[in-house]
Amino acid sequence: MGVLAAAAFAFIWSTGFVVGRFIHGAAEPNVFLALRFGIAAVLLFAVCAIRRPPMPDARTVGAHLGIGALVNGVYLCLVYIAIADGLPAGIMALFGGWQPVLTVLVVALLTRRAPRVTVVLGIAASLTGLVLVLGPGMRSGAITGLLLVLAVLAALLLGERLPGPSLQLFGALAWSVLGISVVGMALMLHLVRTTSPTTVAIVVLAAPPLAAVQTYLLFGDTLTLLQVAGVVVSLVGVGVARVAEARSALPGRVGPASEADGEDPAGRRLG
């Protein structure tokens, strides 16, 4: 079940880059994001009103709003603007591919636990695959509540206008709201709670090569044999790192983390 959830999340997450290109000609980027987050907010508030789950305290809400504003506000606004200005979705995904590396480093610093060597090797292999997949595009010269506020502000500052109704717009909104904002984020939270942030970061490394394959299938972007090999290398690297991280989390396993913390295999404190 965990593997299926991780695979589904990687696929859904990768489509976010593709949507940024798909909406070209149907909607301007930040107006689209404002519509997406607005609809998603109304939908999720309705679900909460019906199910009445326990709500977080004010401090936690503030932290969530801050993180969400950076990830889904500033980050996505800049991503969609870049794609609208001609940056290929696959190249944008390459920059996104470095996020997991930073996540692993931040987690290691906060927990004072170095990641396993196999995890590092898997990440390195995956990044090598990303370079193979997206490298030709780099050489071709082709690069030319708070979340909604950020998207609206960006749209107003850039002079973006409301789009006219179209099947292209409705399809992109339906997938972005239900697929990415609802199902995708739910899968991410599930993986974080059942595994670790490092594991989720490793899975995210599969998104850029998947995005490259999707742009090839949907928009006719070419994939050379070298790029196909890069897709394989990247996904294998993700698999290696994912398995290594899962094994390091097994109960009763002796590893560098437990020894460094002064614990025996049973989890008892030594000394």
Rank of each mutant, 00 (worst) to 15 (best):
A8D: 04
G262I: 13
L235F: 11
I143Q: 09
A266F: 07
G96L: 13
V228K: 07
A155G: 08
Q214I: 02
W13C: 00
L226W: 11
G20H: 02
A241V: 13
L110D: 01
R52S: 10
A6M: 13
F45Y: 09
L153K: 04
P256H: 13
A154M: 09
L130M: 15
P197V: 14
D261R: 14
P88N: 08
L173D: 04
V177I: 14
V117N: 01
L146N: 01
L76T: 00
G2S: 11
S14R: 04
L127A: 10
I180K: 08
R113M: 05
H64R: 07
G179N: 13
I67N: 01
Q168P: 01
L121G: 03
V182Q: 09
L33S: 04
L109K: 07
T111W: 07
G252S: 09
R59K: 15
L162S: 06
A151T: 07
L132A: 14
L162D: 00
L153Y: 05
L43K: 02
S196R: 07
C77R: 01
A63V: 15
V117E: 02
A186I: 06
C48V: 06
L70V: 14
A8H: 05
S14A: 15
P53W: 13
L109G: 06
V228S: 10
L270D: 11
L65S: 10
I81W: 08
G73H: 03
D85N: 14
E245F: 03
V228L: 15
S258A: 14
L70M: 14
G141F: 13
T198H: 02
V204E: 10
L156F: 08
Q214C: 00
A154N: 12
G271M: 03
S248G: 12
T103D: 00
R116M: 04
P256L: 13
L121N: 02
I50C: 08
E259R: 15
M1P: 10
V177Y: 09
G16P: 00
V149N: 05
